[in-house]
Simulated scan of single mutants.
Amino acid sequence: MYGFHEVDAATLKQWFDTGVKFRLVDVRTPAEMSRGVIDGAELMPLHLVPLRAAELTSGGRVVFYCQSGARSAQACAFMAQQGMEDVYNLRGGVMGWVASGSRLATPSRESLIG
């Protein structure tokens, strides 16, 4: 059984505020991303995660998120199956982030294209 960790919005914000090093990956669709992203996120729609898995395995902690946490949990499970141990799912996704009082940023047009 391959496992992954979960992180809530308050803890993720604390990681930002205290300088904890991690990569943040948004696995939503470009249309969803265009409505706002968590600042600093890399945009990688879920279907591209298997194709770009090697990029994600080097360099420590990775936090995946989506709209509600379901698709990002799939990304986490996949990466755990690839042997990645320091992988986290943002519990509640963007909805949980916004509900916690945190803001979304506007992604650049170039990052949505790809």
Rank of each mutant, 00 (worst) to 15 (best):
R61P: 12
V87H: 09
G19F: 13
F64D: 10
V27D: 06
W15G: 02
D26M: 09
G36I: 07
G92P: 08
L43R: 15
G36Y: 03
E6M: 04
F4S: 08
Y88D: 02
L12P: 01
D39N: 06
Q67W: 08
E42L: 09
G19M: 12
S111K: 15
R28I: 07
Y88T: 03
R61T: 12
R91W: 08
S100D: 13
S102L: 10
T11G: 00
F16N: 02
Q67H: 14
C76Y: 07
S34Q: 14
L12E: 01
S111W: 07
F16A: 00
L12I: 00
M44I: 11
S72A: 09
T11F: 00
G40D: 08
F22D: 01
K13G: 00
A73N: 01
R23K: 12
S102N: 14
W97P: 05
V62I: 13
L48E: 14
A73C: 03
L104E: 10
S108E: 09
A41Y: 01
T106G: 04
A73Q: 03
L104P: 07
G93K: 03
F4C: 05
K13R: 04
L112K: 07
T106I: 13
V49C: 05
P107W: 15
A80L: 04
A77M: 15
F16Q: 07
D26R: 06
L43Q: 14
Q74E: 06
G3I: 13
R91E: 11
F22N: 02
E6H: 12
V87R: 11
G60D: 06
F78A: 11
G59C: 04
M33N: 10
T106Y: 03
R61I: 06
M84F: 08
A53H: 02
V87L: 10
G69A: 12
A41D: 04
E55S: 07
F4I: 06
D39Y: 02
R109S: 14
Q82L: 14
Y65C: 04
T11R: 13
G59L: 06
A10E: 08
S111G: 05
S72N: 08
P30F: 02
A99V: 03
S68K: 14
L104D: 09
G96T: 11
V20Y: 06
D8E: 08
E85T: 15
V27E: 05
G36D: 07
R109Y: 13
G36H: 04
D86K: 13
E55I: 00
A31L: 13
K21E: 14
R61C: 06
A31S: 12
V87D: 08
G3S: 15
R71V: 08
A53E: 09
G93C: 05
Q81Y: 06
W15M: 13
V37H: 10
Y88S: 04
G19A: 11
P30G: 01
Y2I: 10
Y65G: 04
L51T: 03
R91A: 13
E42G: 01
V98Q: 11
F64C: 12
N89C: 14
F78R: 10
R109F: 14
D86C: 02
T57A: 09
A70T: 03
L43H: 14
R52T: 01
S108N: 10
L43P: 06
V98W: 05
G3W: 12
I113Q: 09
E110Q: 12
L48W: 04
V49P: 11
S111H: 11
